[in-house]
Design a protein around this nucleic acid. Structure first.
Lengths: 135, 135
DNA sequence: GTTCATGCAAAAAGTTTGCATGATT
DNA sequence: AATCATGCAAACTTTTTGCATGAAC
């Protein structure tokens, strides 16, 4: 049960700050590459690998959230520390964060019943938002 | 509203049959590569690209379903079987089908609350099964 | 001064595509 | 005979990693 929570002594660099800030400024989900372009368009030169590493660190620290999209993994700043899920519009990408303790518990229970450990789960709801469905 | 349902005249080949059959025999989600290996292990030589193309055709014909996993896109045969979810071992791939009316209802309710329509959802639980957790 | 982060380029990993050959209708 | 599918390899995309340099502690 050795947690890999052994906080690996995170150093503050302007690159990491830039990634976090750029991520926070985004309303929705962005890919690492989009974020990289955003930062460079802002006049700061930064390596793509650094963006990936910074994002991985943020996710590891539960400060960012990730989902897998068609064009790659998308990240979003996520101050809420709880695990939560998303309701996303298939058409315009509008996203609503949803939390559901019931589902968390249910997933854990199902897993336990079957003897599974180190459980994670993915739960996302897709649909058409009112605006996009709009007649 | 022009659907791209212009069925492009699909020809029957043993490769396409093999892919469909192999997919149907899998209880859970499989990657194209896993499917490719399964077919070849079954004694039939088939190109990986062919497996990808066959899967794309099945998805296009609504005969298969896809989700994005850590190790790539995973497919499952999806002929009108009722909606259910999976508990899958990250290590050995053992899969348990789980049903949860509560979650179905909850998803629908959340979506409705936010004015979303034409709702679908993905819910899968991943963990280590007892055997793989071993020790 | 030590340790960790950066940046680049190369490597992985998964998927798609071009093209000549072969199979299906 | 005319198409469409296959197979291979090469191209592509996204993400990760090795390693030398540079920054943070």
């Amino acid at each position: 049960m050795t947690d890999d929570d052994a906080a690996p002594q995170r150093r503050r660099t302007w690159q990491r700050d830039a990634v976090r800030e750029a991520l926070q400024q985004q309303p929705g989900f962005v890919t690492a590459q989009e974020l990289h372009r955003l930062i460079e368009d802002g006049g700061q030169r930064i390596g793509l690998a650094t963006v990936y590493r910074a994002l991985a660190a943020l996710v590891d620290d539960d400060l960012a959230d990730t989902i897998r999209a068609e064009d790659g993994d998308r990240y979003r700043f996520c101050a809420t520390e709880d695990h939560h899920h998303h309701l996303m519009c298939r058409r315009c990408g509008a996203t609503v964060e949803i939390t559901g303790d019931a589902v968390e518990l249910w997933a854990a229970q199902i897993a336990a019943e079957h003897g599974f450990t180190q459980v994670t789960h993915e739960f996302d709801v897709f649909g058409l938002c009112r605006a996009c469905a709009g007649g």
